[in-house]
């Protein structure tokens, strides 16, 4: 098993609160890993450590065996893309949004990115203000893919979407994982984790509770969490 990320005794403390408590896991290359657990379990905190939008106060995070601080942080973030919970569009036109992280992106490349996330290329000229939540989240996903990341992090990226949009975004995650991209997603929805992921990491109150293939993780075997 080739580990993309290795977390060694990682802790995050903010003030008096211990958000992550000595978490040690490995995230396999090409896997789709779901971080699950109740609210406040530390899932998003853990995810943000992987592209250094957050920093551990104890332990260390390795990428391909090298501690993250050894990488140039800007280059690291291009290798490890993040899609946030709420879709945040940054410009007035879809094409411009796709170019935020890569200005030299051609229209053809932009059209292919939209196709990859299940949107028509006619949307390139659309104003971002008129997009539905599902369309906006897929544009954000395409914008992240534009910088050609090796890993995709998704932080509850469907939690603000309706069922149809959720299904569309999930389909994109599945396809990316099938294409060999390492995907790490935070979800509070056990059914979603079962649908998309092949591995699951269960956190509760900042502590690692379970880690393994989705079919073997007891936390995911109920109807809802």
């Amino acid at each position: 098993m080739v580990a993309v990320f290795t977390l060694e005794e990682v802790s995050v403390r903010r003030g008096q609160a211990l958000l992550l408590d000595s978490v040690g896991i490995e995230i396999r290359a090409g896997s789709c890993t779901a971080l699950v657990g109740p609210s406040g379990a530390g899932k998003s905190t853990l995810l943000r450590l992987l592209n250094r939008l957050g920093e551990p106060t104890g332990g260390r995070v390795l990428l391909h065996g090298r501690p993250l601080p050894e990488f140039d942080v800007l280059a690291l973030r291009r290798r490890v893309g993040l899609v946030a919970q709420a879709p945040t569009l940054l410009t007035e036109r879809v094409l411009d949004d796709l170019r935020v992280g890569r200005q030299e992106l051609t229209e053809d490349e932009a059209a292919k990115l939209l196709e990859r996330v299940g949107l028509p290329d006619s949307m390139l000229e659309r104003p971002t203000a008129g997009l539905s939540g599902g369309e906006a989240q897929r544009v954000c996903l395409a914008r992240t893919l534009a910088v050609k990341p090796e890993v995709l992090l998704a932080d509850e990226s469907t939690s603000a979407l309706d069922p149809a949009s959720t299904a569309a975004v999930e389909a994109v995650f599945k396809q990316l994982a099938a294409d060999g991209m390492t995907v790490v997603l935070v979800s509070h929805d056990a059914a979603q984790a079962r649908r998309i992921a092949d591995e699951a990491v269960v956190l509760t109150a900042g502590r690692l509770v379970e880690h393994g293939p989705v079919a073997q993780v007891a936390y995911l075997q109920g109807d809802a969490v």
């Binding site: 592209n51 939008l53 973030r77 291009r78 893309g81 946030a84 945040t88 935020v100 954000c140 992240t144």
Partner: peptide, 13 residues
């Protein structure tokens, strides 16, 4: 903050 972090996450300084 969400917009600023979205740009940072794309590797922008």
């Amino acid at each position: 903050r969400p917009a600023i972090e979205a740009r940072l996450a794309l590797g922008l300084p």
